[in-house]
């Protein structure tokens, strides 16, 4: 197919040296795809390695599947494309999962609005920290990530991948919870009392994930949280202990301590990860 214009020799040289600025590079990309004459110039203009690189890039522009809307949005927000692709494999960032979280929050808000003692929306405050924890538990680990076995033997840092997914899931579910917080009636600052407990619970679960299955590692702090709420509800006072000033300070200290522990044991994530693999053993016990 002939075209009306042709890339100049200089443009092609700068193209293969990757010195051509955007969006000029896109024009040359598109043009090379349809112009045999310029492709011949490209092939003859440079030594093999940069030319091959140029061809690969052209091939990629022409044939690689385009990323989805979310991936493109993450890219526009400054995230590298490979990081965005890693996040796309996170189950708890999928639409059904986030929709479930939103419905759960909506229900707790409705209960708070219907409650006569709306100054302390206990159900909302109890559930809000558990949602991100649940999201983290089901984002990475044996039995919840279908490619977990491949991740185990890949050179990528398991710890980095875990933190990446945790950050993404926490940010997303926390944003949902914050939106819900606005709808909680008349609670004032108390309504964001779940933020620090949420952070502490997630960090503690990450520490436990170095040795335990991710779901178990999240269940332990979740039960601890429920236990603390039930116990403190029995104590005299207007608000359960975790939502008092002292309670928030203690929770923040626990989060910091868990964070420090996580930093110290991060090497464990690369060698001693739990696995869902169960050997079908028919071995005789050896005497």
């Amino acid at each position: 197919m002939s075209t009306e214009w042709h890339a100049t020799q200089d443009e092609i040289l700068r193209y293969v040296r990757q010195e051509l600025p955007f969006p000029q590079v896109w024009s040359v990309d598109a043009h090379l795809g349809s112009c045999a004459r310029c492709r011949a110039v490209l092939a003859g203009a440079t030594d093999a390695a940069p030319a091959r690189r140029g061809w690969e890039r052209l091939e990629d522009e022409l044939h690689a599947p385009q990323p989805g809307r979310v991936e493109r949005a993450l890219g526009r927000a400054g995230m590298s494309e490979h990081t965005a692709r890693l996040l796309m494999a996170t189950r708890t960032l999928s639409r059904p999962w986030l929709l479930s979280a939103a419905v759960m929050l909506l229900l707790t808000v409705l209960v708070a609005q219907a409650s006569e003692s709306s100054s302390m929306p206990l159900l909302f405050l109890a559930v809000a920290p558990l949602l991100p924890l649940l999201g983290v538990a089901f984002s990475f680990g044996p039995g919840v990530d279908p490619t977990y076995e491949l991740t185990l033997v890949a050179p990528i840092s398991t710890f980095r991948l875990l933190l990446l997914r945790t950050a993404a899931v926490t940010a997303t579910t926390t944003a949902l919870s914050l939106v819900a917080t606005v709808a909680v009636p008349g609670a004032g600052l108390v309504a964001i009392g779940w933020l620090l407990p949420s952070l502490a619970l997630i960090t503690l679960s990450l520490v436990l994930m170095s040795r335990l299955d991710s779901v178990v590692a999240a269940a332990v702090p979740a039960l601890l949280w429920v236990g603390v709420l039930v116990f403190s509800a029995a104590l005299p006072g207007d608000a359960p202990v975790p939502f008092t000033t002292i309670g928030q300070i203690v929770t923040a200290a626990a989060a910091v301590a868990a964070g420090l522990s996580l930093s110290l044991i991060r090497g464990r994530f690369e060698s001693h990860r739990p696995s869902s693999f169960t050997p079908h053993v028919t071995t005789r016990r050896l005497s």
Binding site: H82, L86, A89, T147
Partner: peptide
């Protein structure tokens, strides 16, 4: 295991990232 939402290309691309291939063009 597979992420069923991925296409064949996207899935292998994902595994390639796990294998530290971060340069998009070369990885693709």
């Amino acid at each position: 295991g597979f992420h069923p939402r991925f296409t064949a290309f996207e899935f292998i691309d994902y595994v390639a990232i796990l294998k530290e291939m971060t340069d998009r063009v070369r990885r693709h």
